[in-house]
Every structure is written in structure tokens, then in C-alpha cells.
Nucleic acid binder design. Structure first.
Lengths: 162, 162
DNA sequence: TTGATAAATGTAACCCTATAACATATCAAC
DNA sequence: GTTGATATGTTATAGGGTTACATTTATCAA
């Protein structure tokens, strides 16, 4: 199972691996992995949680990489449109993808207590939703699947699982 | 199959039925179905599509029922929290529930061309998402399931299906 | 029926999220 | 090295949502 995001793991190596994968993908597909785009991805990877665009922008501003909203949104658009990051609609926030490069429909498990986010796979064309779509003649192109609840740590009674 | 929302149907009777169901539910549960709350639900039922809070507020203002955002948001909170309406996260908009009173996890089919929305049932605890949750020890309390694509009418080449 | 409590409304001000528009710079390829 | 496309800098503004507080209306028990 490749659900990750809860529990401990070797963070610096997961970050390096993701960056390398994105770098390769961009080279292969002739995409410009510019400093701002790279830095935004790094920020998302480092925090390893859902971040608002303005929170990201604060960091960019501190580093002199840009100070106006479009700077952050443009970088995020690039990352999201190529599957390097995802938007969590429920939080109006963004997370780095945990398996960039692979074609996939992400599903998220969002902790309502500590805002931790884990990414899993969804198969929108299967199950009830797929059946409803087929029955009505609706063609699914994209899906938002986000579950809210309590992550393992917060269930264990941690008052606020940092 | 109880996916509805695409295609024709007897609209005034579907609206009356929904209002009656909500009225009953409120009486039984001693909830105050006040004029503003009722009117907001009526507006959502009448338009039969996803509407932004400010769009609803415009109508309320025209009718002298309130002019500030909290008026609309409070009514919507009431409707959503009791399952009489749902929020479409992807659109930052709201729709009337098509089967109020019944306990359910809604899933939506959203047309990217004409913004029509159909409500279906989801079963978040089943399928891939449920497995991912079980595996990681995450407890799902709520789910957002929204598919984007083309509705039957728009697929048939209608340049903009009303 | 009155008084206490809880629930709902009115209103002003504000915060967060996101995009439009336009000028400038940089890149990629011929 | 010129050109066309792509990316960035910046200003202003649109859109969505909440806080806070005063006021009113409903509920229910004494």
C-alpha cells in the first residue's frame, strides 16, 4: 500500500527523491523547472503538509523570490498541472505529490485535528461514482476525493499531534 | 439508481416535495425553519444548480431579507449541517440536497461546461479509500467526492447546454 | 405571564484566496 | 542575433468567508 503521510519516515531522503524525480521529468518533457517553481516544491516537500498559497508566498518573500500573489499561484499552477503537487479543495491549500511522475488520481485523508494529509490512490471510474456516471452518461475527466477524520496519532489521544 | 440532476423532470413538484420533507424534519427535530433559511433553500431548489453564497445573498437583498454576508452564510450553515443542502468544494458553491432527511454521503458529478451538478451516493468506507484508511488507522468521518467532466447534454455537442 | 436562557438576526469591519491586466525579461530555436 | 513563446514583476481588484458585537426573537420553566 502506498498511502504515506502519517507516521515517521526518512524525510530528507524522501524529499531528495521527489525533487530528483521531478527534475528528470522536466528534463525529459522539456519543462522549465525554474528557481521559483523549484523553491515552491521544496517548501511543500519540507513542510510535508498542506500549505496555503499565502503561507508559501511569505517564505518566498523572505527569500527575495517574489512578493505578490501571482508569483506563488503561477508556480503552484505549474506544479499542480504537471502532477508534482495537488490542491486540497477542502482546505484551499496545496501539498507536494508523494509519487510525482506517475499518472494517478489522488485521494486524500485529512486529519481534522492536526491537518496532516496523507495521499492515497482513488479510482473514480470504479465503484458507486463510476456506476452513477455510466448510468447517466456523464464522462468523468477528473475527481476530487477527500476524506476528513482523525489520523492515527490524533486518535491515540494526543491533544494536538503537532 | 437515484442519481438525478441531469435531464428533465417535474421541477415544481420536486421542489414542493423537498420543502415538505425539510419542513417535516424540522418539526420532528424541533429545528427553527425560519423565513431566511426557508427562502435560501427555496432559491437553491428553484435554480436547481450550484450557487455561490454571494449570488444567493443578492436575491435575499432584493427581497429585503438581509444584505450582509453572514445572513447568507448562517442560513447555508444551517442547511448544510442538517443535510438539506451540500457544499461543492470545487466550485465554492452550494446545492440543495436531492433527498433531504436521509442520512447519506453525497457524491457529485459536475459538468465543466455548463456547471450542472448531479448528486449520487458515495460509500467512502468502501473501495480504495476505505482500504487506505483502514490500513493506516485513519477514521473517516466525512468525505468530499466530486467528479468533473461532461454531462450527457454537453457531450452531445450542445455548445453550451443552457 | 413573566423572567431567564438560548437561539437567531442585523451590521460593520475585516481577512483570506484568487485572478485580471499589462509591462518586462528570459529562453529556445531557427 | 532576431523572433516568438514562455516566465516574471507589479498593481489593482474580484470573490469567498469570518469575527465581533449589538439586538431581537423564540423557548421553557417557575
Amino acid at each position: 500500500m502506498d498511502t504515506i503521510g502519517f507516521g515517521q519516515h526518512d524525510h530528507s531522503s524522501c524529499m531528495r527523491a521527489a525533487l530528483a524525480a521531478v527534475e528528470n521529468y522536466c528534463t525529459e518533457h522539456k519543462l522549465q523547472f525554474t528557481p521559483v517553481r523549484r523553491r515552491v516544491l521544496e517548501i511543500l516537500l519540507a513542510r510535508h503538509r498542506a500549505m496555503g498559497a499565502y503561507e508559501i508566498l511569505d517564505t518566498l518573500r523572505d527569500e527575495g523570490l517574489g512578493s505578490q500573489p501571482p508569483v506563488a499561484y503561477r508556480a503552484l499552477d505549474f506544479l499542480v498541472s504537471h502532477g508534482f503537487a495537488h490542491k486540497i479543495e477542502r482546505l484551499n491549500a496545496f501539498v507536494a505529490c508523494t509519487h510525482p511522475g506517475q499518472d494517478h488520481t489522488p485521494a486524500f485523508l485529512i486529519c481534522r485535528n492536526c491537518d496532516a494529509v496523507a495521499e492515497a490512490h482513488a479510482e473514480p471510474s470504479r465503484g458507486m461514482l463510476g456506476r452513477a456516471a455510466t448510468d447517466t452518461g456523464f464522462s468523468i475527466e477528473q475527481a476530487v476525493v477527500e476524506a476528513l477524520g482523525l489520523c492515527p496519532d490524533c486518535r491515540k489521544g494526543a491533544p494536538a499531534c503537532a
